[in-house]
Design a protein around this nucleic acid. Structure first.
Lengths: 217, 217, 217, 217
DNA sequence: CATGAATGAGTTTTCATTCAT
DNA sequence: CATGAATGAAAACTCATTCAT
């Protein structure tokens, strides 16, 4: 229970830095402080290790996102909660999130299908909010799809630069992104006044701790 | 002159699909229709092939972006031109752009430093526009850095979904992104009325043609 | 402990026959009865395998030679003991000795420097004996350096033709070489009467056994 | 006629330094100042280039050695002439001689047989002289074969250390070796007084010029 | 004569994985 | 649980050689 996280954290750290394909199983063992053969006690293969990490990451994103949407029936508040959740998760688990995003291509067809399904489920949360906001007249945009994609891309980008000890607190970043999202969708930001739509983000087991790594590219 | 593009296009296609590390030199040869050993006539190593591709991509992005900024002294028009250039390039050369972005980590330290320098040069174009727009009071945002990063991230995301034969023309997409950019920076979009800030994007030699590949992840 | 000798013996056998550069790692594995990849458990590289062999060979030559010189303070007896040791070692470990001599050039600069140092240490034993013998008037020659080199070259040549089951016993060969050495240096052979200056030579772990190979060239 | 020597000299230089197997055809071209493909105008293969060099070297050694033996019918004078010739040739063509000796093993069976035949022919000159000198009572040794081998080995060793600009002139070295040979065979050196048994050595076309290379090993 | 381009077979080394201990 | 040893397959890269120009 404690060791498996160590392995997953080592995996995420190295996969994020170098990519799945460029990371060897021996390297993983070394980073986790165990013999490389021992990894096969925790995961049947290198790919399964990646799948474990991706699945728990996407599961948590979906769970948090769905919970965020349940705090209100108002599209604008749902949008704020969802964007906050997304940005919060991404900023809190930057390496895991990055791996879950980048390494889809490393999966074999079966696993890829399964993981893509989870990602699609997650993205559909955004699609639902945007679509309903437009339908009820709270949002307005030239192109709903493009707006949604831009929204997510932006939020995901947080993983590239956010640092807990940086210039801005996480909450500031979240508010900022909510503001940008509202602008993009021409939503009325004042609807959010006095609403506490931010939930503290979960730290997933696979996220390395104490590593302030700079990942380039 | 014709062969080297063929090799580069094969490289970009496979690097974009599978990643640099997961692409073999034999695979590259096969995709380019030549013996794998022949690749070493065009590039001293697999990494050098990647560097060639990245360098020409980043060079072109910088050239186009700098040219875009010269069409006017108005920050809003510069912003529109720069965003259009970025989106246009990314949509026209999605695979090359993707490789140039994703595979920075695959480079050895020396090459990485050199390529990162080019990317920094390019990003500084955005920083300059945003900073000047704010200074002269044409733009307004809670956080300039975050806005700039969101702007670029958004535009880069185009490579993930834009298809020439898709629902929207490139020009529509460009206008749309310019609109979103203006919203994010609270810029006055009417300043763009009647201004032709879009230049046709260049197709770089390494961009595969006739491939409507779907890249996931 | 048993396997590493097997690998080293295979290496020495093939390196002696064909040379280091002309011997493949697969060939080595085949000769040692193991998979070629397994060789990398015993040595980090093909060159390291060579270094292992050379180092243990030269270490043993130095140890034996130094011991030989300690059996007496008389230059003539030291000469006899050193020549016997050299000839004995070379005849007992012909392939290893040959590899240690011929393949110096196959080493990378760092390893070459280290191995050359060992060889220089060994050769200096001969230089010391010859020099002291001349100084105290026991030896006489037109040119000390040339005599020493000729002495060593001669002895090393034993590896090219000596066979344990040949016409002469090892002890006969040793006595013969001692006689030639004395002639070259005009030393008084009668000083050796009744002196037992021959020690049984050591068989190094890398010397192939049961192989009556003819090495040409 | 001028170019073929250049190629052969480059070959000898590199083969002596690194060995035949470790020398690439491109490297040879580079050292000879021509394209690697052009080498195939001068020799049908890398091995043929080696054969050319070895054959002309051994031919010249046999010719010179045979001529040396014709200067007298006296075994002692023949010995002096043959040893002088051997040492002279080896010191004058150290790299070529070294290649001809070391790289026999690099040859394919057919070529090896042919070259070994030449070497055997050459060695038989020494065998003849020693045998006849013993038969007529001019020489005396415990073991004729061993003496002959030691004699040749010693002389060949000259290639390892002799330098034209060194401490000793070639003639001094030759006289020295003749003296050592006489000692080994207990021949009467005074028989050589006043006899001019030294012929100036030939420089073979393949011997690199102006290169004072140190070859280790 | 000379060469740049090309290639199939080869090189050393690393890979993910298995298994006896 | 943990590991050192082992391995077949594959990695990137180099090889000697050919040939059209």
């Amino acid at each position: 229970m404690v060791n498996i996280s160590k392995v997953q954290q080592a995996a995420v750290l190295l996969f994020a830095r170098q990519g799945f394909a460029a990371t060897g199983i021996r390297e993983l063992g070394g980073a986790a402080g165990i013999n490389s053969a021992t990894i096969y006690h925790y995961a049947g293969s290198k790919e399964e290790l990646l799948v474990q990490v991706m699945r728990s990451c996407l599961d948590e994103m979906i769970t948090s996102g769905a919970a965020a949407m349940r705090i209100s029936a108002e599209p604008t508040i749902q949008l704020a909660a969802l964007v906050s959740s997304h940005v919060g998760f991404t900023a809190t688990n930057p390496l895991t999130a990055r791996v879950a995003e980048y390494e889809m291509r490393a999966l074999s067809p079966d696993n890829r299908t399964a993981m893509q399904k989870l990602r699609d489920d997650y993205e559909s949360l955004f699609a639902q909010v945007v679509e309903r906001g437009i339908r009820v007249g709270d949002f307005s945009t030239d192109d709903a799809t493009m707006a949604r994609l831009a929204l997510m891309e932006m939020g995901t980008g947080v993983a590239h630069w956010y640092r807990p000890d940086g210039r801005l607190t996480l909450i500031e970043v979240q508010h900022n992104f909510v503001a940008m999202a509202c602008k993009i969708l021409s939503a009325n930001q004042t609807m959010l006044d006095g609403i506490d739509y931010i939930r503290p983000p979960v730290v997933v087991a696979s996220e390395p701790t104490g590593t302030s790594v700079t990942i380039s590219g």
